[in-house]
C-alpha cells in the first residue's frame, strides 16, 4: 500500500457533514449527565434532588439535540427496533430506566434510587462510547482507543459540574480524573497516528492538543489543587468549569472538525496497454 499525503478532491478523506454540533451535543449532555449522577451517587453528595435533576437535565438536553438532528423526528420511536446490534437502540432503551430511576431519586430524595440511576447512567455512557466506535466510516471514531477516552471524558465532565454545584468536594477524584483523561487522550492520539489516519484528522488534533493540555488539564489542576489549600470555593468552581468545558470542546472537535471519512483508495493501479500494474494508492492518509 502506498500512502500518499497529497489531497485528491473527492478521493482523499473529507470532513463528514452528516453529524453536526447537535450530535456532539448528545455526547456532551449524555457524558456530563451520566458523570454527574455517578459522582453524586458514589460520593454521597446532597441534596440528591439537585444532582439528579441537573444530571437528568444534561442527558435530556443531549437527547433533545439528537432528536432535532434526525431527518424524521416524528418517527423517533423506531429507534427502539434494533437492540440486537445497534448501540443507538441500546442507548435509547437504557435511557428509559435511567430517567425512571433518576426521576424517583429526584422526587423521593432516595439515595438507593440515585445509586441505581448512576449505575444505569454508566451503562448509558458506555453505549454512547460504543455508538461512536461503531462508526466504521470515520477512522478517528472507530479506533478502539477512543472508547476509554469517551468514558473518562464523561466522568470528568460530570465531576467538573459537581465542583460547580458543591465546591471543595471531590477535589482528589477530579485531579485523578484529569490525569487519567490526559493520559488516555495521549494514548489515543499516538495509537491513531501509528495505525494510520486521514491527514486532516491528525492536523486538527495537533492544533487542538496544546490548548487542551493547558486549559483543560494543567490550569484546572492548579485551580482545584489551589482551592484545596486556600479553601476558596471560587477557585474550585473555576477549575470545575474549565474541566467540563474543555471536555465539551474536544467532543465538539471530535464530531465536527476531526471527523474525516475513510475516503477512497485505488486498490491496484490497472494495466494500461503494455504497461505494468501499479501498487495500491491511498491518498490523504498518514
Amino acid at each position: 500500500m502506498t500512502s500518499d499525503l497529497r489531497e485528491i478532491k473527492g478521493v482523499s478523506p473529507w470532513l463528514q457533514t452528516n453529524w453536526d454540533a447537535r450530535a456532539a451535543g448528545n455526547f456532551i449532555g449524555g457524558g456530563t449527565g451520566a458523570g454527574l449522577l455517578a459522582a453524586a451517587a458514589f460520593h454521597g453528595l446532597a441534596p440528591i434532588s439537585l444532582f439528579s435533576f441537573v444530571g437528568l437535565a444534561f442527558i435530556g438536553l443531549g437527547l433533545l439535540c439528537v432528536w432535532l438532528e434526525i431527518g424524521r423526528p416524528w418517527r423517533a420511536i423506531n429507534v427502539f427496533f434494533h437492540p440486537q446490534t445497534s448501540w443507538m437502540t441500546r442507548e435509547g432503551l437504557v435511557a428509559i430506566p435511567l430517567f425512571a430511576l433518576g426521576g424517583f431519586a429526584l422526587l423521593f430524595d432516595s439515595r438507593l434510587a440515585m445509586m441505581a440511576a448512576a449505575l444505569v447512567g454508566l451503562f448509558y455512557l458506555y453505549c454512547q462510547a460504543r455508538i461512536v466506535s461503531a462508526s466504521k466510516g470515520i477512522p478517528a471514531w472507530r479506533h478502539p482507543a477512543l472508547i476509554p477516552v469517551m468514558l473518562v471524558m464523561g466522568l470528568a465532565e460530570g465531576v467538573g459540574v459537581s465542583l460547580l454545584l458543591a465546591p471543595g468536594q471531590l477535589a482528589l477524584p477530579a485531579l485523578i480524573l484529569l490525569g487519567v483523561r490526559y493520559g488516555l487522550w495521549r494514548r489515543y492520539l499516538s495509537r491513531l497516528q501509528a495505525d494510520g489516519a486521514p491527514v486532516g484528522t491528525i492536523k486538527v488534533f495537533a492544533a487542538s492538543h496544546k490548548p487542551y493540555l493547558i486549559l483543560g488539564h494543567i490550569l484546572p489542576a492548579l485551580l482545584i489543587g489551589g482551592a484545596g489549600f486556600s479553601e476558596s470555593s471560587w477557585l474550585s468552581m473555576l477549575g470545575g468549569l474549565l474541566m467540563t468545558t474543555s471536555g465539551w470542546w474536544v467532543k465538539l472537535i471530535l464530531i465536527t472538525k476531526a471527523a474525516y471519512n475513510q475516503g477512497f483508495l485505488v486498490p491496484r493501479v490497472p494495466v494500461r496497454g503494455q504497461g505494468k500494474p501499479g501498487a495500491p494508492v491511498k491518498p490523504g492518509w498518514v
Binding site: 418517527r75 471527523a259 475513510q262
Partner: peptide
Amino acid sequence: LCIGCAYCAVACPYQARFK
C-alpha cells in the same frame, strides 16, 4: 422505517449513503 439519524452514513466506509 428510516428515521434519518444518518448513523449508517457515518458507519459506511465507502461514503455511499446520502440524506
